[in-house]
Structures are given as C-alpha cells and as structure tokens.
Simulated assay, not measured.
Amino acid sequence: MTQTALITGASRGLGAALARALAPTHHIIAVAKTTGALEELDDQIKAAGGAATLAPMDITNDAAMQTLCRGIHDRWGALNMWMHTAVHAAPLAPASMIDAKDMAKSVAGNVTATATLITYVAPLLGTEGTAVFFDDPKAGATFYGSYGATKAAQIALARSWKAETVKTGPRVHIATPNAMPTATRARFHPGEDRSPLADPQTEAVRILAELGA
C-alpha cells in the first residue's frame, strides 16, 4: 500500500527538504502557493525515483482545502503523514506599529488555517497517522509581535491536539528546527552571516529520524 505524506508549505526551505527526504518511501502531496517552486520540487523528486502530486493552493482558502482533502480521500483513502511547514511571516515591527493587514494575514495563515486543516486532515490520518508541526519560539521577542504571537497560537493548537490524541491517535509531534538559511529568515535577518545556520536537508533528516520515519 502506498504511503502518503501531505506537506503544506512544500515549495521551499524545510518543507521542500522534508518532501525530498520522504520521497523514497512516500507519495508526496505538495501544497504551496508558488507553482514554479512546486514544479522544481517535482523534478527533484522524479529525478530521485519518487512521485508527487502538486497542489498549488493557498491554505487560507477554505474551499481549496476541502477540495484537496476530499481528493486525498477519493484517491488514497487515508494519509500516513502530514507535515505542516506553511507559515505567514509578516514584516518585523514594534508592537505599537503592527500593520492591521499584516496581523490579519498572520492570524489567517498561522492560526485559522491551521485550525481548519486539523479538522479536515484528522479523519484522513485516522488512528495510525502522524501530524508534525514546527515550533519557532519567537513569542515575546523584540519586533516579532504578529509572527511570534500567531506562531505561538498555532503551536498551542498543536499541543492541545497532541494531548487529546495520546490514547486515540493520530500521533501529533512538535519539532523545533534549528535556525536555517531560509527565505523567511532572510527577510527577518537581512545581511546576517548564514554560514553557521543549519542546512534544511540536514534538519529534515534529523527531524524524520526523531519520528522514526
């Protein structure tokens, strides 16, 4: 039976690295807004002998996520793994100067979409599947108001789901990646020395090893 892995936020960074790492053993369902980056990922997966289904969608679009999850059910019947790396990274700003539109996008992308996806993906994972979320403990850090607060809320949702499913499944895991030279980090820390940062592919392999995947 084909093992399936849904990766939300798969176009670059850790999401793409996880897709490449899982491709030898899983059919990858790659979700992201950037079609070109998804196609590049697809080429990499195919070159390594794997297979992927590309879903160029916005996770904040409820109808699109319903369609995606119904399609997964109709084609495979279930999911083995969900890796949720998608995140909205609003520009850094003092708490007293957070732009209302940036805050709304942060809530929609990091909190509301996560809560909605949990309700749609949970039945696909059943009792045996695994969901993985990725903590970034920036809550309370200087200038990280909108990102830090909404990322913390996302992880709070994941922790609640984890506590609720200890006996019933699915297994919910919260990983904390080391700092990586991603596009998101580059926007937060322009001009920093990136040489000490962890390679996303190395982090993907480490996190999957922690999961026993």
Rank of each mutant, 00 (worst) to 15 (best):
D62V: 11
A63F: 07
A63H: 05
A63N: 03
A64R: 00
Q66G: 00
Q66C: 09
T67E: 14
L68V: 02
L68M: 06
C69T: 14
R70C: 11
G71K: 01
G71M: 03
H73K: 08
R75F: 06
W76Q: 03
W76D: 11
W76Y: 15
W76T: 08
W76G: 01
G77C: 06
A78F: 04
M81W: 00
M81K: 04
H84Y: 13
A90E: 04
A90R: 08
A90Q: 11
L92V: 06
L92C: 04
A93S: 15
A95N: 14
S96N: 15
S96Y: 15
I98N: 01
I98V: 15
D99S: 13
M103P: 00
M103T: 07
A104S: 13
S106M: 08
A108R: 04
A115S: 12
A115W: 05
T116Y: 13
L117D: 06
L117Q: 12
I118Y: 02
T119K: 09
T119P: 00
T119E: 13
Y120N: 02
A122Q: 14
A122Y: 03
P123S: 05
L125S: 10
L125C: 03
G126A: 11
E128T: 14
T130G: 03
F133A: 12
F134M: 02
D135K: 05
D135F: 03
D136R: 05
D136K: 00
P137G: 15
P137K: 09
K138Y: 14
A139W: 01
A139N: 06
G140H: 04
G140Y: 02
G140P: 04
G140M: 09
T142E: 09
Y144C: 05
Y144N: 09
Y144E: 12
G145I: 05
Y147H: 12
Y147S: 07
G148W: 02
K151N: 08
K151Y: 07
K151P: 01
A152F: 08
A152G: 14
A153C: 10
A153W: 01
I155F: 01
A156N: 05
L157V: 12
L157C: 06
A158W: 01
R159L: 10
W161M: 10
K162L: 10
A163Q: 03
T165K: 02
T165M: 11
K167D: 15
T168A: 14
R171F: 08
